[in-house]
């Protein structure tokens, strides 16, 4: 059986992008969060989904 990669490894490919995660899998990604939310809705329906922007390895956030 093919073992799925841990989500953290998968997220590395999407640094700086918006991604949608459903059932511990990335189901949508892109530069526009609204499109990612739409794609995820289409694919996941009413399953719980988390939307996030994948942070760079190190960053400073001061607002």
């Amino acid at each position: 059986m093919k073992k799925s990669k841990p989500i953290e490894k998968e997220l590395k490919k999407h640094i700086g992008e918006w991604v949608a995660i459903c059932n511990k899998k990335i189901v949508a990604c892109g530069s526009n969060p609204s499109s990612v939310m739409d794609k995820a809705k289409d694919l996941c329906g009413n399953r719980e989904t988390t939307i996030l922007r994948v942070p760079e390895k190190s960053q400073i956030l001061l607002l």
Partner: peptide, 21 residues
Amino acid sequence: TQSVLCLLDSGADFSTFPVSI
């Protein structure tokens, strides 16, 4: 069913989100 993951920043005065959301 969609939630948005937010970073918590004690040094930030304001909460910020993109307009597209």
